[in-house]
Amino acid sequence: MFDRLSFPQPWLSLILFVIWQFLSDGVSGASVVLGLILAWSIPQMTQAFWPERPTFFKSWRMPAYLMRVIFDIVVASFQVAKLILSPRKPRPMFVAYPLELEQPLAITILASTISLTPGTVSVDVSDDNKILLVHALDAENGDDVIDAIRTRYEKPLLEMFE
């Protein structure tokens, strides 16, 4: 019974509560009460869908990583824009990227980062979570793509999830 009253995922609950305050035009008594109810009930209802509890990670490293990703998104969108407008044909390529990360959450973050930074889209993860299939829009050499992802995104994530 005690289990039913707990917050299985405190961070998710906190985020839900804060977002509800933003959504409901100003903090008031009603929005706080409703926010608390949602913050308690949604993690309870969705608990069956979480395969495992998210592991601890060094969240204070996240802002620096996000800044780098946003910067990369802006810089690389210009490259993709140039490529789309130029008459030259792109040289698309499927690259099998060997993953060093192991936690599903870390792999999800890496795959989303790859998809958001222009020039690459993550297509699929192999069933044993070892290989990520990446589609590059314009690549000469698959190893360059792998090196770029490894040094720019996977290394910081590895440090974060140790």
Binding site: V80, A81, I84, L85, L116, P118, G119, V121, V123, H135
Partner: peptide
């Protein structure tokens, strides 16, 4: 530019690049 990419790139996988980035 994202929409132009969607309209003129040659196959589905390359078209995927336009909207996910440029449009976002």
């Amino acid at each position: 530019i994202g929409a132009i990419g969607l309209a003129r790139l040659p196959d589905f996988y390359t078209r995927l690049h336009g909207p996910t980035k440029a449009t976002t």
